[in-house]
């Protein structure tokens, strides 16, 4: 029996990885809000269930005035409300309301627009609407790699870029001048017509004079002969190498001092001495 229990235990065990918490003040940006991540301050995703609402506000009114305040959340399907809670201050002293509404766990996807609606004469101050939530990280296993049924996502397909299939390239390489295209087609057509005409004339000439053909053959062979240049003589030409040696040899014969320079240096020294004497 104990063995059976041990064998079945892995199939029976299931751990709930719930996280509980509170959202930020949904009414911070005004008395109408969407159930979005920036508004609630928590990531709105599959697995997030709302279990209650804590709301506070301070009504400003005269006792004799009629004034009602309703805190509500529309159904995302647009066919009603998830909850509606109304306080009627008509004929009553204003008192700061602080209320906790318990809700069955409602998926966040079911929540539509939230709002604080008023009727009558009066205003509200210090409004705050906070949602209590429960988050099941593994309801969508793809939320967390540690979830039991998590499937690693496939790498995204690599798209090979083919410039020839690029519409922009096609558009850029397309001839856009219609007149040029038409001119090209006209020229091509006229050339073909001229060639056909020449060919017809030649055929008629061949029929009338057989020498024309022989002449053509002779001229063709002559042109072939002129065009056939034997390049091997250029490729196979050999240029003999030669060594150019230095024939000049300079020998040290000694260099004598330049006496003129020595004389000039003595003049310079005298000049310097004269100049320095001025400052003495």
């Amino acid at each position: 029996m104990a063995l059976w229990v041990l064998l079945l235990l892995p199939f029976c065990s299931f751990s709930y990885s719930y996280t509980f918490g509170y959202t930020g003040n949904a009414a911070q940006g005004g008395n109408s809000w969407g159930m979005t991540t920036p508004v609630l301050g928590v990531t709105v995703q599959e697995g997030l269930d709302i279990s209650g609402v804590i709301y506070t506000y301070n009504p400003i009114k005269e006792v004799s005035d009629d004034f009602t305040v309703t805190v509500q959340n529309e159904n995302a399907a647009g066919d009603g409300y998830i909850f509606q809670d109304t306080e009627d201050f008509s004929g009553k002293h204003p008192i700061r309301i602080r209320k906790v509404l318990q809700l069955p766990y409602v998926p966040i996807e079911s929540f539509g627009q939230g709002s604080i609606a008023t009727t009558g004469v009066g205003t509200l101050k210090d409004e705050s609407v906070i949602y209590m939530y429960r988050f099941d990280a593994c309801r969508n296993p793809q939320n967390d790699p540690s979830c039991p049924d998590y499937i690693p996502p496939l790498p995204p397909p690599i798209k090979i870029y083919d410039a020839l299939d690029d519409d922009s390239v096609k558009l850029a390489s397309k001839e856009t001048d219609k007149e040029l295209i038409d001119d090209d087609e006209d020229n091509k057509q006229s050339n073909e017509e001229e060639e056909d005409k020449d060919r017809l004339e030649k055929m008629l000439g061949i029929a009338s004079n057989a020498f024309t053909l022989a002449d053509g053959v002779t001229q063709s062979s002559l042109i072939n002969t002129m065009n056939s240049v034997n390049m091997d003589t250029y490729y196979l030409a050999r240029i003999p190498s030669k060594v150019y040696r230095e024939p000049l040899v300079l020998k040290d014969q000694g260099i004598s001092d330049n006496r003129k320079v020595l004389r000039s240096l003595s003049n310079d020294r005298l000049h310097q001495t004269m100049i320095e004497e001025q400052y003495k």
Partner: peptide, 15 residues
């Protein structure tokens, strides 16, 4: 003093 209440019906409690 009563700082807040869960219902507008309690607005007469202070008086």
């Amino acid at each position: 003093a009563i700082a807040s209440a869960s219902s507008s019906d309690m607005s007469g409690y202070a008086a």
